[in-house]
Write a protein that binds this DNA or RNA. Structure first.
Lengths: 191, 191
DNA sequence: CTCATTCTGTACTTATAAGTACATAACGAA
DNA sequence: TTCGTTATGTACTTATAAGTACAGAATGAG
């Protein structure tokens, strides 16, 4: 009964994610997003609200993508050790080489001083909490696969720290072999 | 033979560091720095050049401060294990609680899409390289304190990753006890 | 076919912030 | 004291980018 939208919002979110991820929230102007997507500003504003809201949508989408993947990988049968190794290894393409240079959208955003801190923190905290929950749940469930005294809660958090460190250092474009070596060494904590 | 400068450049760098650290490079306007320091813009430009140059001075100062401290701590006599534990523990006040919220100026800047990437990367790479060198040198020197098969090079890099991870997750204001627990667990790699 | 409704694109307003022109002030040398 | 030199402060220019007004286009209902 009225003119239909000429684009798929999800496509635009995908494009916006690429642009924001490459340049950061502040350094990205809406004009760059209109240029990349072909959608004019009024349409973006009508569909997503202002720049902050658009970014939060993009960030949530990013978080959900990683969470969905983590859920699948960490639910796989077999030893917990292998599931976690595979989870960590899966990040290698994103934290080494040229592609790693952009780092992690979530970690990058955490430092962006011009974002609405309340909403941003909430989104990032939720993401980190869920990720750590997935790790913790798996480690707790398979607790008896590890040696006496193994603490699944602390270990889950340590793995989160290692993950964050790898993504934070990704901006230096480290070699994938080096990242692999770090992961293998950290696997030593899962014994 | 001419009018002397009315301020100590180092004082201004110190103030600028606080402001930049709190809000990030882009989100900080020069007006905020003039407000915080009491120095008018033309004086800042005369003394430091433009905003980028000022920030790079601030960042180098930040790096040098941490490097100097790391050098002292990691050169201390006794077991390498203890030196490294002390080094990591020293970061706890900066990566937990309220003060931790601002994170690490170096890591934060790495994601700032509007900085001159070439100069910035150079500064950060130098910092990380030197820090890792200090760790590696100490671990190599005291190699025989660890068990057979210990790899000082990979271990030094892993410690860098853990350090970066702690600073990256600092924005969530974790509890210092939790950070301490992670450090203790990671110390398990130094055996 | 026509109308109500919602989307689209051009072109605008407005705010913010980087960088600077210029007049003036403070100093040391002679 | 006077002059050359360099710093300071006010007030400006200018560029960029967020957000919007408005006229016109596209649809389904009746």
């Amino acid at each position: 009964m009225a003119r239909p939208r000429s684009f798929d919002p999800d496509d635009v979110l995908e494009i916006a994610r690429q642009v924001f991820w490459q340049k950061g929230f502040q350094a990205t102007s809406l004009d760059e997003i209109t240029a990349a997507s072909g959608i004019a500003k009024p349409s973006l504003y009508a569909a997503f609200g202002d720049k902050h809201a658009l970014f939060l949508r993009v960030l949530d989408r990013y978080h959900d993508g990683i969470l969905g993947w983590a859920e699948r990988v960490l639910a796989q049968p077999g030893p917990a050790r292998e599931a976690i190794r595979q989870w960590l290894t899966g990040f290698i393409p994103y934290c080494s080489g040229e592609k790693g240079q952009r780092g992690c959208l979530s970690i990058n955003s955490a430092t962006d001083g011009s974002l609405d801190q309340a909403a941003l923190r909430k989104s990032i905290e939720r993401y980190n909490r869920r990720l750590e929950e997935l790790l913790r749940t798996r480690l707790r469930a398979d607790r008896e696969q590890f040696k006496k005294g193994f603490d699944p809660d602390i270990t889950a958090h340590t793995i989160m720290v290692v993950h964050a460190g790898l993504m934070a250092l990704a901006h230096q474009t480290p070699d994938s072999k080096q990242v692999k070596a770090v992961i293998e060494q950290v696997m030593g904590l899962l014994a």
